[in-house]
Amino acid sequence: MNIKIITVGKLKEQYLKDGIAEYTKRLSRFAKVHLIEVPDERTPEKASEAENTQIMAKEGQRIQEKIGARDYVIVLAIEGKQLPSEVFAEKMNQITVDGYSDVTFIIGGSLGLSPEVKHRANFKMSFGLLTLPHQLMRLVLIEQIYRAFMIQQGSPYHK
């Protein structure tokens, strides 16, 4: 399986880079992981709704250029479905049973994701109603992907 995690903006904090590197290494026995950062747009402090829409559209275009035609796409969006870890593990397994070998996760920028990116998604997923920094969300996501594989293996990691 190939897993792509497409994110908007650069990861800055070293502790997050270290955590993501650790889980990427752990995941390597289950899948090839590709971490893809697309540039974010500068958002003026008091941007209008039209400016925000334009910014999301530009970021969305960059994201869509990185999605393969045959990718199963999961976007992280607040309106998405919340899943317990065990159900997420089942979902990941079902994706492969359905014949997908490329799974792409997308984390938007500070304004969220463009409607076009959300429309391309096969599944919208939410980690809850809490607001988390997008950079921290990368670490949370990759840990949950690793946890899903460990649950599938029957590993005690999940306990």
Rank of each mutant, 00 (worst) to 15 (best):
N2D: 10
K4M: 13
I5P: 00
I5W: 04
T7H: 06
T7A: 12
T7E: 04
V8P: 03
K10R: 13
D18I: 12
D18W: 11
A21R: 15
E22Q: 15
T24F: 10
R26D: 09
F30T: 13
A31P: 01
V33M: 14
H34E: 13
D40S: 05
D40G: 00
R42Y: 12
T43Y: 00
A47N: 00
A47Y: 01
E49P: 13
E49Y: 01
E49R: 10
A50K: 14
A50W: 02
N52T: 06
T53I: 03
M56C: 02
M56E: 08
A57T: 10
A57D: 10
K58G: 03
E59P: 05
G60Y: 03
Q64S: 01
I67D: 00
D71R: 07
Y72P: 10
V73Y: 04
V75P: 02
A77P: 00
I78A: 15
I78L: 15
I78V: 14
G80W: 11
K81Q: 15
K81D: 14
L83P: 08
S85N: 09
E86H: 13
E90Q: 14
M92P: 00
Q94M: 06
I95N: 04
I95Q: 10
T96D: 00
V97C: 05
V97G: 04
G99F: 02
G99D: 01
G99W: 07
Y100S: 07
Y100Q: 05
S101K: 09
T104V: 12
T104P: 11
I106W: 01
L111E: 01
L111N: 06
L113D: 04
L113N: 06
S114H: 14
V117R: 06
H119L: 09
R120G: 04
A121H: 12
M125K: 08
M125S: 10
F127A: 09
L129N: 13
L129M: 10
L129V: 02
L132G: 02
Q135K: 15
Q135S: 06
L136G: 04
M137I: 06
M137R: 04
R138P: 07
R138A: 13
V140N: 02
I142D: 05
A148N: 02
F149D: 07
I151P: 12
Q152L: 07
G154W: 06
G154I: 09
G154Q: 11
S155V: 05
Y157Q: 11
H158T: 15
K159E: 13
